[in-house]
Each structure stands twice: as C-alpha cells, then as structure tokens.
Amino acid sequence: MSDLIDDPMPGENAHEYTVSEISGAVKRIVEGEFGRVRVRGEVGRVFAARSGHLYFDIKDDRAVLASVSFKGQVARFPVMPEEGMEIVATGKLTTFPSQSKYQLNVDDLRPAGVGALMAMLEKRKKALAAEGLFDEARKKPIPYLPQIIGVVTSPSGAVIRDILHRLRDRFPRKVLLWPVTVQGERCAAEVAAAIDGFNALAPGGAIPRPDLLIVARGGGSIEDLWGFNEEIVARAAAASEIPLISAVGHETDTTLIDYVSDRRAPTPTAAAEMAVPVRMELLAWTEAQGGRLARAATQGVAQRRQRLRDVARALPQASALT
C-alpha cells in the first residue's frame, strides 16, 4: 500500500515566492546590510553622459562593481576618475529588481594615496607632451615692461599681497585680479575660466586687456595643488595668447601648468620679479647710457674739430694764392 504513495519531493512544502518578493528581499538585505561603504579598486570603463552623470566600473583582479555618480555628486569630486586610476570610492549600494542588478552610487571619490595621483599625473604629462604642448618653440616671450598685469589667484591670503608688494617695490604697474578658488573641486574650472576670460578681453575695451598673466597660489600637498594638474587648466594656459607665468606652490612643487606656461616661477614673489625690472636700476642704467651718449657726442665733436684744424693747416695761406 505504501508503494502507491509517492514520497514528497525535497522542497515541495517550501513557501512559493514571487519574483518581486525575492527581488525585494534581496534589495532589503543588500541595501540594509551594507549601507554606506568604502571600496578600493581600479577604475575600469568610464562613460560621461550628456546629462552630466558619470558611469564607471571599479574592479580588482576577480570582480567588477558597476558604479554611478550623478551630476551634483560629480561636481564635488576633487579629481575625475580615469581608466587605470587606483581610487577609494564612498557611497551606497543600490539594487535594480527589474534588471536583477546592483551598483554603487558614489558620492565621494579620491585617489588611493599619492602614488595613484603621481601615476595619473605622469599619464597626463605624456599625453600632453605628445601633442607638443610642452615644446619650447611654442612659448611666447615675456614683455619687458608690461603696462597691465593680470593675476589669477585667491583674492585673500599672502599670495596676492606678496605679488602686489613686490611689484610696488620694483616697478609699479596696473594689476587686474581675477579671483578664483585655488583648492578643491571648483579650482580647475575657475582657473581655466579666468585664463580664458582675460584672453577674451578686447584691446582698448572698457576693461583693459593685460599684457601679461600670472597664475599663482602658495605651497601645499599634491592634493592641495591638484587643480593645477587638471587637463582643463593646462589646455587653457597653452591656448593663452597673452604670455603667462605660472607660480604655483614652492620651488620644489611642479604642476602641469608649469610645463605649458611661457615661464615658470618658483614662487609667486619670483613671478613678480620676472614680470618687471627694478625701476631704480632701470633709471640708473638709463642715466648711465645717457652719460655714455653725452661723452660719445662730446668726443665725436672734439675729434671732428681736431680733424678740421689738421685739414686747415694743410691748406695754403690766402696771401699765397694772390
């Protein structure tokens, strides 16, 4: 009799879930269990949408994590992710039940240490150098005595004071300040816009067009100076029709803008010294040249007077001609 009764299949008495129930449970577990997470890995594929959103992969040698950052989040990034860059991303895991997928919504992204930044910097340097943007042949001469100097820097702090003080000591000139943020996520865009803005000024317009630009900020870590390593800043400096002196950081600091600028100054104070001569030295030189000119003129007149006397002695006396 027992042979006529089939044994129940394993799991036959288990509860039946709908697809939505399973997907919802997975969503609650994944998003509830992890919350905000920090993930370290290498940036893979990067896609910037026209909407301003950024889609990219974070990977290691065994797995890939799809990631997204929305326009407002991207604007706050200190650096933009590039393929091959080692990063630490912070955000929240989200799931898409309709697609059976999950991804990381990244709201903070930073290079994984100085080594990652330096590797990315070298990659950019090679790319820009290959385009010829570092060639000495394309660099413009610095005007000897510019009438108007445009300065791109922070409106507060020691840098602008040092530049103005040094110019006043050496040879007072008219200075136009274009205030910018010199650190953080807004730095690169503002500096590039300032360089472009000065170049866009029409000669003889209401706002005079500078004869020389100085882009400056004080010293800091590589992270602090990173805005001046962004490609948008390097390209704006390279495209500047106005001669440009870069003065970013201290003497040992080097950024991408230094390679494309027409002159690189080790400090903002040194940039002011490159921009103008010393007025008193120039006056002394002018006075010395005037003295040399006067002495040469006096000597020339004396030589010609003596020559005239010599020629006159060779002439016969007027009485001998009659």
Score class of each variant (00 low, 15 high):
260 V>G: 03
192 A>D: 10
201 L>Y: 09
199 N>C: 13
213 L>A: 06
199 N>V: 00
188 A>C: 13
205 G>A: 12
232 I>H: 02
219 G>Y: 09
208 P>C: 14
259 Y>H: 12
203 P>Q: 02
223 E>K: 10
243 P>V: 02
245 I>G: 06
226 W>T: 04
220 G>Q: 10
189 A>H: 11
188 A>T: 11
233 V>W: 03
251 E>K: 05
229 N>Q: 08
212 L>S: 12
191 V>A: 05
221 S>D: 09
229 N>W: 11
259 Y>N: 06
227 G>M: 09
187 C>A: 15
219 G>E: 08
194 A>I: 00
260 V>S: 03
202 A>G: 06
233 V>P: 01
205 G>K: 07
247 A>T: 08
253 D>Q: 13
252 T>R: 09
238 A>C: 09
224 D>L: 04
216 A>M: 05
184 G>F: 03
185 E>V: 00
192 A>N: 06
220 G>C: 04
199 N>L: 06
239 A>M: 02
225 L>K: 10
188 A>M: 12
222 I>M: 15
234 A>K: 05
233 V>S: 01
210 P>A: 06
195 I>Y: 01
191 V>C: 05
231 E>S: 07
192 A>F: 08
203 P>V: 13
191 V>S: 10
241 E>H: 13
216 A>P: 00
236 A>M: 08
242 I>S: 11
226 W>P: 12
191 V>W: 14
213 L>K: 14
211 D>E: 13
221 S>A: 14
207 I>G: 04
246 S>V: 01
235 R>P: 03
200 A>G: 08
245 I>N: 08
188 A>V: 11
186 R>N: 15
244 L>S: 06
211 D>C: 02
230 E>D: 14
216 A>C: 01
245 I>C: 06
226 W>V: 09
215 V>Q: 08
213 L>I: 09
198 F>G: 06
214 I>K: 10
229 N>D: 14
259 Y>E: 13
253 D>P: 07
190 E>R: 12
185 E>Y: 09
257 I>Y: 00
212 L>A: 10
222 I>F: 14
254 T>S: 06
212 L>W: 10
218 G>R: 13
194 A>F: 04
196 D>S: 07
197 G>W: 06
234 A>D: 07
200 A>Q: 15
251 E>T: 00
233 V>G: 00
255 T>Y: 02
201 L>H: 14
227 G>I: 12
186 R>I: 04
215 V>W: 11
189 A>R: 15
217 R>Q: 12
227 G>P: 10
193 A>T: 11
234 A>W: 02
239 A>C: 08
215 V>N: 04
197 G>F: 05
237 A>D: 02
208 P>I: 06
228 F>C: 12
221 S>N: 12
231 E>R: 10
248 V>G: 08
208 P>S: 13
250 H>P: 07
186 R>V: 06
247 A>G: 05
188 A>E: 07
191 V>E: 14
214 I>N: 10
221 S>E: 13
228 F>Y: 13
190 E>G: 02
197 G>V: 00
253 D>H: 10
206 A>R: 12
202 A>Y: 09
209 R>K: 15
223 E>G: 07
210 P>E: 05
208 P>K: 04
196 D>K: 08
229 N>V: 13
214 I>R: 13
222 I>T: 15
231 E>M: 04
226 W>R: 04
201 L>P: 15
245 I>T: 14
250 H>K: 09
244 L>V: 07
199 N>K: 11
243 P>Q: 11
197 G>A: 07
223 E>P: 03
